[in-house]
Design a protein around this nucleic acid. Structure first.
Lengths: 199, 199
DNA sequence: CTTGTAAACTAACACTTGTTAGTTTGGAGG
DNA sequence: CCTCCAAACTAACAAGTGTTAGTTTACAAG
């Protein structure tokens, strides 16, 4: 790992616990093992470090959605979910969880969004698009599709989006690590969900 | 409002946007209209201001729960909810919402918990007790009771707690203000919930 | 071997931070 | 009117902040 990447790594870790403003460039430099002035060979200023973190993390998020066969606008290609079953929904939830909770960079990125959302309008917008409006919009489309194809009993797709997604959102905030307790709760949630809404 | 209360008020507002560390005692003093050294006539140090905020807000929370006929340990006296109906559940949700989202102090208190949770173990515990473990525990008890009395079809009370509470939790984070959109979403959620679980 | 350059370094700057010591003020109670 | 005292003030401190200028180092390309 080169110095620039190391700086990003250390900054991501620090910012995600103490917040951008509370971490000094000297803290970062010390942790990396260089003098603070050397940081400025790699970044224009402190803000540039932060911006680069956000940029890289967003790129990682987009890549993840592509891997899950969803394009950036969260408009899904739902043919992937043909033959939906409890296992398939469970895997969707597991994937989401592992990515945002288990992956150490994404966990830290999420924390930064949470900490900085109130003082930084750009961050607030990213956070809301990722975990509120965008997520619900996507899930609504998904359940509309699953209703049309007869896989689930769907009267109001947005209500199903809430019923399916909000417990996952809750668990994501409740648990820091993807452990057995989470697995159990996720499984229980999805089993219950399927029981409620199967045709 | 005396000077001490004014300091608390200003600090609550600032801390809830920028975080404890990013707000200087000079900022606070300037906003109150005194010199920074005068703050130390009212508080031992900066940390003392923060601690007093937490203490007062927690007192307000406890008082609220008492008003809602729930004691501090979140063990409910559920006889209040005799004759449960959609309106009653809706009112529970409205009350919760109005208190934590509409009340300006509580909204700010919540934000402080969110911002400071990762660097402050005490805050983390308060946050989790208030909005995760404690809340689910309480709701589970509630639905167990509503199942026993035949008001709802309850197989697994904890699942109902999740189904009822997590959308409320989600909406609380999604919306800053208690507006018509929230009212609509809350009503829709609870109507759907009742339809799903009525006997 | 020489040269060029990226990336480390030292040193310093102007400014902000939390906090303390000592002083002045203004109003209440005797 | 005098005394007392809470609560304001001025002034200063030591430490920490982001950033810049100028210098040295190490190594690859010619």
């Amino acid at each position: 790992m080169n110095t620039k990447d190391k700086i990003i790594d250390v900054a991501l870790e620090r910012f995600s616990t103490y917040g951008y403003a509370s971490v000094s460039v000297r803290d970062l430099a010390k942790e990396v093992g260089i003098k603070e002035s050397s940081l400025y060979n790699h970044f224009k200023n402190k803000q540039d470090i932060f911006d680069t973190i956000i940029e890289r993390c967003m790129a990682k998020v987009m890549k993840h959605y592509q891997t899950m066969h969803l394009d950036q606008t969260l408009q899904g290609d739902f043919t992937v979910y043909r033959g939906i079953s409890e296992d398939v929904l469970l895997n969707i939830a597991y994937d989401h969880f592992r990515f945002y909770v288990e992956d150490v960079d994404m966990k830290r990125f999420r924390r930064i969004l949470i900490i900085e959302q109130f003082k930084n309008e750009t961050i607030q917008q990213i956070y809301h698009t990722q975990f509120f409006d965008g997520a619900i919009q996507f899930q609504t489309q998904l359940f509309k599709h699953l209703g049309d194809t007869g896989h689930l009993r769907v009267e109001d797709p947005e209500r199903l989006a809430y019923a399916f997604y909000t417990p996952i959102f809750f668990l994501m905030h409740r648990y820091d690590r993807y452990n057995d307790e989470v697995k159990l709760q996720l499984s229980a949630h999805i089993h219950h969900f399927i029981e409620q809404y199967k045709p």
